[in-house]
Design a protein around this nucleic acid. Sequence first.
DNA 1: CCCGGTCTTTGCTTTTCCACAAAGAAACCC
DNA 2: GGGTTTCTTTGTGGAAAAGCAAAGACCGGG
Lengths: 237, 237
Amino acid sequence: MPTTPDPSPNPTIESPLLAGLTAAEASRVRSAARQQLKKPGGVFFMQGDPADAVYSIETGRVRLSQVTAEGQQILLRVIGPGTVFGAIALARVDTYPVTAEAAEVCTVLVWPSSVLMGLIEQMPKLALNAIQLMAGHVQEFQDRFREMATQRVERRLARTLLRLASQTGRKTDEGVLIDLALTRQDLAEMTGTTLYTVSRILSQWETQGLVRSGRELVVIRYPHGLVKIAEDLGESG
Amino acid sequence: MPTTPDPSPNPTIESPLLAGLTAAEASRVRSAARQQLKKPGGVFFMQGDPADAVYSIETGRVRLSQVTAEGQQILLRVIGPGTVFGAIALARVDTYPVTAEAAEVCTVLVWPSSVLMGLIEQMPKLALNAIQLMAGHVQEFQDRFREMATQRVERRLARTLLRLASQTGRKTDEGVLIDLALTRQDLAEMTGTTLYTVSRILSQWETQGLVRSGRELVVIRYPHGLVKIAEDLGESG
DNA sequence: CCCGGTCTTTGCTTTTCCACAAAGAAACCC
DNA sequence: GGGTTTCTTTGTGGAAAAGCAAAGACCGGG
C-alpha cells in the first residue's frame, strides 16, 4: 500500500495524538506527560481499574486483553510504538474495560486524563486527533465483529496472521517473521477459537508450504497463499 | 434498570452530542443542522459513500448494516431517537463503512461534517461529547466481538433479544414486546448465525414458555429466563 | 377469494469445531 | 544434565451449528 511516502526523518514514532500540531503545541502536550517504564509482564492497568490516564507507546509492545465474566480470556490486540491506548479515559468512563500489560520492555508516555482534557479544550486539533483515533478503533472492532460473525476459523486465523505481519512483521530471506512471541493459545484468543484448532491449521499450512511454525514462532513463507485463504479467492484465484 | 430517573420534561430526546452544553450553545449547534425526512426503506447513506455528514435521530428507527466482500450482509444495530450515527465522518475517514437506512418514517438532524468540525473547534465540550460517543461504540463492539469469540449461539441470541428489548421494548400484559419488525434473517444477522438456527432456538424457547414468536414478532414473556441463558446461571441459578 | 410473495418451521445431512487425552518437543533452572 | 515447566502436536469422539430441501403460515393485491 504505497499511499503515502514516509517523510519522517525522526527515528521515534510520533504519537498520532500529536499529528498535525505545531512543534510548539506538540512539545507542550508531550511535556504534560510523564514517562513510564515497564518490564515484560508489567501491568499498566487492569480491567476494572479507574480509567484516569491515557498512554502512548514509545518503545516496546503492549498486550490488551479482556476476561469474560466466565473467566475466559481474550487477547484483543498487541500494539507497538506510536499507538495510543487507554484513550477511553477521555470519555468519563469510570473503569478500563481491558487489561494492558507489557509484552516486552516498554517505555510509554502517560497523561492523566484530566490534564489531557484540559489541553483538548485549548487545542481543538488535539480533540480531532482523539476523535480520529477512536473512530479507527470503532472501525477495527466493527470489522472484526463482522469477521467473527461471518467467517470460518481458518480464514480468521489467516487474517489474524496477516494483520500481525503488517503490524509487527519482519522480512527475512525465508519470508515474513511475526516478530513477537505468541503462543498457540494467544493466537486462539485473538482469533476466537481454541489452541488445538490453531495448531491443526498451522500444521496443515505447514505441509502446504505456506508457513513455518514452531514454539512461539510463525513465519509466513508465502503471504499470497494466506491472502488467498483470507479472501477466499477459492480454487480459481 | 432504574439507575437514573428521567428528569426530562421534554418530549424530544436530546442528542447526546448536545449534552452539557448551555442552552445558547445547544441551539447554535442545532441550528447548524438541517432536518431531513425519510420514508421506510429510505437510505441516508450507503456503505462506500463519501463520509461527509453526521446524523442524529429525532424520531423513527434506523438500521445500520454492512455487506462483506463476499456479499454476506450483517445488521450491526438498529437505533432510535437520540442516537447519533455517521459520526465517523468527523475522523477524516473517506467513506462510510456501513449503510444507514430508515426502518420506519424518520426525521433526523444532519450536520455537514465540516460545519460540525468548525463548531468543535469553538466548543471543546462538543468535542468531548463526540469522543464519549465514539468511546461508547468502541466498547460496544469490543464487547460484541468478545461475545462472538467466546459464546454459543443460544446465549448470543438471548443477549441480542435482551438488548433489543431494552432499546425498543414495549411492555404489554403478556411480556415485553420487541416493537420492531425483525425477520429471523435480521436476528440471525445481528447474532452471527443463520435464520434456521434462530428459528429453532425460538421454537424451543416458545415450548418452554420463555417467549412467544410469530412472523416478524417476538414477545419476551419471561425476561428472567432469557437473562439466565444470557449469563449462564446454569441449572443452579 | 385466489394467487404470489415473503417469512417461518422442521426434518435430514454434513461440516465445522470443540473437548479431552496423551505424548512429544523445546526452554528453563538450579 | 536431570527434572520441571511450558508449549505444541495429534488422535478420537461428540456436540453445535450450518446447509439444504420442502412444506406450511401469513400477508397483501388484484
